[in-house]
């Protein structure tokens, strides 16, 4: 038995070493460096809790956390129900559904910056295709990226567009693993399509739902490229999500230690959200 445990441990060693070097060590260094003032040029200076105290008074940082949470609340429901609906329509193995699956998966394969630039052109107030169509129809153009709420909605839409393919494939895998006998039994009992889905299929997708939710939350919460290219955090600070605020602090102001302190707080907020999500799902 002891031998078996030892050999199991040995097999896990490469993965553990990888995890230690590329995950635990960087996280640990973030914690340590958050107590320093550093501009990546001169040697780091220990400043104790200064960065964290400064953070408490930084209203734009807390604003960025709130913007990130708002974006999460707007995007996650879309990232859940749109792929679910598509998966329900496309999970059966037909040539047509395979083509459509590839079509919906394609945005996920596209580099984030390319996809976002395309969106930016599409949504431009003066030069965008969307407003061109709206104007041609005789309506006033929509200030998609010029007002806070439409701008946040545009980011949310962009994220949903980019994620739908991946999440749809997760749901399709989940749906295909539900035994057909359950559906047949429900039909025999007189359940219609909606009842079969809601009372039989959906509860059986519990694990897939959890996977989709956590994946969507992680992707939305850490999104940087989309916001950076589409709005740059504007108008004003209305789409300034925390990763972008941290990036600006670190790499345009070169306040690396302060940015690390922000990362620590952001990590804790992410952790709380992850725990809450899991608890809610369990219930």
């Amino acid at each position: 038995m002891k031998k078996l445990i030892n050999s199991r441990f040995l097999f896990a060693v490469p993965a553990l070493v990888f995890l230690f070097i590329f995950v635990l060590l960087p996280v640990f260094s973030v914690f340590v460096m958050s107590f320093f003032s550093w501009d990546l040029l001169s040697p780091p200076k220990f400043t104790g809790w200064d960065n964290f105290l400064r953070l408490l008074e930084d209203k734009w940082f807390w604003n960025s956390i709130w913007v990130s949470i708002k974006l999460l609340m707007m995007t996650v429901p879309m990232c859940f129900f749109v792929p679910l609906a598509l998966a329900v329509c496309l999970y059966k193995e037909t040539t047509f559904s395979k083509i459509l699956r590839a079509f919906f998966y394609w945005p996920y394969m596209m580099p984030a910056v390319a996809g976002t630039t395309m969106f930016k052109w599409l949504l431009s107030y003066d030069l965008g295709l969307l407003n061109h169509i709206i104007k041609s129809a005789g309506f006033s153009p929509v200030p998609w990226l010029l007002k806070p709420t439409p701008a946040l909605f545009a980011i949310s839409l962009l994220r949903t567009w980019g994620m739908t393919g991946l999440l749809m494939m997760m749901f399709i895998t989940g749906l295909q693993s539900v035994p057909e006998e359950f559906h047949e039994a429900a039909r025999v009992d007189g359940a219609n399509r909606w009842q079969t889905f809601w009372y039989v299929t959906f509860p059986l997708l519990k694990n897939t739902n959890l996977l989709v939710l956590t994946t969507a939350i992680a992707h939305v919460f850490r999104d940087f490229a989309g916001v950076y290219v589409l709005t740059g955090g504007g108008p004003g600070y209305s789409t300034m999500v925390t990763p972008l605020y941290i990036y600006n602090t670190a790499f345009t102001q070169w306040r690396i230690g302060y940015a690390y302190a922000m990362s620590v707080v952001f990590l804790l907020v992410s952790f709380v959200i992850a725990v809450v999500t899991l608890r809610v799902r369990e219930r």
């Binding site: 010029l146 004003g236 102001q253 070169w254």
Partner: peptide, 19 residues
């Protein structure tokens, strides 16, 4: 050099009518 980002964000907010 470090003040540039706040200047841009604040002016952008004023032009957008948020501040």
């Amino acid at each position: 050099s470090r003040l540039q980002t706040p200047i841009v964000s604040q002016m952008s907010a004023v032009i957008a009518g948020q501040m």
